[in-house]
Design a protein around this nucleic acid. Structure first.
Lengths: 392, 392
DNA sequence: TTCGCTTAGTAAGTTTCCATTACTAACCGC
DNA sequence: GCGGTTAGTAATGGAAACTTACTAAGCGAA
């Protein structure tokens, strides 16, 4: 590491520590969190304040001693933009460094083509920018329900959108002024999980999200496992029944063939807009409700158990349409997991439902767009020095 | 990071770069590998030479320019000790920083008790130390075929050894002088894989090792995934047939119940000392050979496919008793994996056989015992004879 | 042979950055 | 108001790495 990078490293450490603390913290507090000395932290904080990344509050007296000057991530000094491109809507969310919503836009309805969806998305980004015209933009992250090339530029396939090899980033870039910052596309499941990571920082868990299919993510000590192609954690095509039902993907016995919303809807012969809670009710008319829950629980449990065996994790978070029925299916899932997961021998497997914040993918995308600031605050300090706003 | 730690970081970076290079490298070469400047590398190298961690060779001329002074990890300057505790033998291997074998000892025969096995192991360690009495000992790593507590001190269970809750490290420590350095126990599968990592540094792959059971490891960019309890990658108890055969572990449908050496031997009604190649022959007398290969290949393939789906990897390495029959089973495994693994859509899944170096666990243990030197070379510099190398 | 080119390595001085030490600031309780 | 306590700053010093400029040593072509 060059000595130049040391400062960058420490700036980042201070900013991260402040965010991780989750509450206003004094310079002295940051010093003990980062194990840097008080003078060093003072200097770094001064720079970060200068760059508009940290803000000071009024001194707070807490017991004896000089009152601390509370520091927190600065609100309203920059704009990070998240996009969500879904089958039936496109949403855009602008947040500042605190993660607070600055602006939000949505267009409902299915786009006729990828080009149209991209044009809509770009329009929303422009509107969100216009709501905060003076703020520099960190970047744009788009959540897409599909597979994305490792460099985050190309949507390889997104079945629900009917997209194949769509150059999303290039498309957005042609519609947007270059000051929009970096634009990157990421998988919606691996963005949704960021919201969950905020709730339980530095934990390790398996995240299972039911949307149209069944996706998920693997979180190891607070960071999302990417995998070779960027789709690690995709639980949907785990084989739970060799030679079983044929899945939409053409394979047999996939988890999705048994428990995806899509599969269940088809199985029940219902319309596409049934809520999952009603769906289970509907299904339980033909067979017994316990049986339906049993099928979901057992196949899901088996897939989870196999994943936990490989990863040696002991926490599972159920999200998406699995969250509302989590309470009901958990006993069966737990039973199956306990019966098959090795980790169950070392201690109980925790099966939890996710945070119920709406639009986790959208929020996660905005959250991801903020990341460069935490990773490299130095870039923002040089920017603050040259008020032109653009890096040379 | 404090500025004190910067030096440590860079010393480590230089030493690692030298090892990773795999061939003698000049100071200038290290500078470009580490992105440090030549003078900085020169200084760091000087320290490492003083500490006996790097050695200089005679200048080598390669084309134009001044000949380089080749640097390599120093041979015979320190001793790292690996232990392997198996059901029918205990082995001990001493290596230096280059990984070269300095000394090796083995005692065959099953120990009557854990205490006896530990006493044997300690004796071997003493003998290996006695073979190189002047070298400082980095530490001792013991490979154990079982589950080990996360702190590496306690063997929770090792079915083949008939061990439960054995305080291995404490036991070894009472037999050994404290200068033996840190003593740690680790799982044999996750140590075996280190040999494979040396062959393909920084790659990601799934390592599947057939021994008495079926174990494995997950390697992500050159580092072994540990998991919550330290047994990530254990493929043996993946469910490949829900409600299928009963496994030794009491569960049903585990991979091990189908393809472990143990299971196959039992299935064939043979003695315990059959070689795997003969075993397959033997089994093929009752049914057709293709059928036996088919069962192994399909169940293994299914387990691998599920693991690859979760982890998004595209390389598998077969090791242990799977290596000698790799060629035969690979077609079926590949077919099954390709049929079920999502990653197969992005490109071919590579299924390879492991390095055939004998005693991979023992070698891996010694390799792991070396790790502290690469992680923190600074500790060895202070130990070195003359830190008075400060030029005024 | 000699001169220029190229690469390896070193020396000296400078810069950057953090730690140390010692201080001031501000508040509490007695 | 006075000690105790915590927050924060100022000045200095030292460690580490960078920059620049040099020497060392070989190759090859004029």
């Amino acid at each position: 590491m060059q000595s130049t990078h040391l400062r960058e490293h420490n700036l980042s450490a201070v900013l991260r520590a402040l965010q991780a603390a989750g509450e206003p913290t004094s310079r002295a507090g940051l010093a003990s969190l980062t194990r840097l000395t008080k003078p060093t932290v003072s200097k770094l904080v001064e720079e970060l304040i200068g760059a508009g990344l940290i803000s000071e509050g009024d001194p707070i007296s807490a017991g004896a001693g000089r009152p601390m000057v509370p520091l927190r991530p600065a609100a309203g000094t920059l704009l990070a933009i998240g996009l969500e491109i879904a089958a039936d809507h496109v949403s855009c969310l602008g947040v500042d460094l605190t993660g607070s919503e600055l602006s939000r836009r949505t267009v409902y309805g299915r786009a006729a083509s990828a080009e149209e969806a991209i044009a809509r998305a770009a329009q929303l980004v422009r509107e969100v920018r216009a709501d905060a015209p003076d703020l520099p933009v960190v970047g744009v992250v788009a959540a897409v329900p599909g597979r994305i090339s490792p460099d985050g530029r190309l949507v390889l396939s997104a079945p629900n959108l009917d997209w194949t090899d769509v150059p999303l980033v290039e498309g957005l870039r042609t519609h947007l002024a270059p000051e929009a910052g970096d634009i990157v596309a990421l998988n919606d499941n691996r963005l949704s999980v960021l919201t969950e990571i905020d709730r339980r920082p530095s934990e390790s868990f398996l995240y299972v999200r039911g949307s149209t299919g069944v996706g998920g993510a693997v979180v190891l000590e607070g960071s999302v496992l990417e995998g070779t192609h960027g789709w690690a954690g995709e639980l949907g095509h785990t084989v739970v029944e060799p030679g079983g039902l044929t899945c939409r993907c053409g394979r047999r016995g996939c988890l999705e063939a048994y428990i995806s919303y899509h599969a269940l809807v088809e199985q029940a012969g219902l319309g596409p807009e049934v809520r999952i809670e009603d769906l289970v009710d509907e299904l339980s008319r033909s067979s017994s409700r316990a049986e339906v829950i049993g099928v979901i629980g057992r196949s899901l449990g088996l897939a989870i158990a196999n994943a936990l065996n490989i990863l040696d994790l002991s926490t599972v978070v159920l999200s998406g349409y699995l969250a509302p029925i989590a309470e009901e299916i958990t006993p069966v899932v737990r039973e199956t997991v306990t019966a098959h997961a090795l980790a169950a021998e070392a201690g109980p497997i925790s099966i939890e439902r996710s945070d119920t914040t709406p639009d986790p993918a959208l929020r996660g995308a905005a959250r991801a767009a903020l990341q460069p600031v935490f990773d490299a605050p130095g870039a923002w300090i040089s920017r603050a020095a040259t008020p032109a706003g653009r890096t040379a």
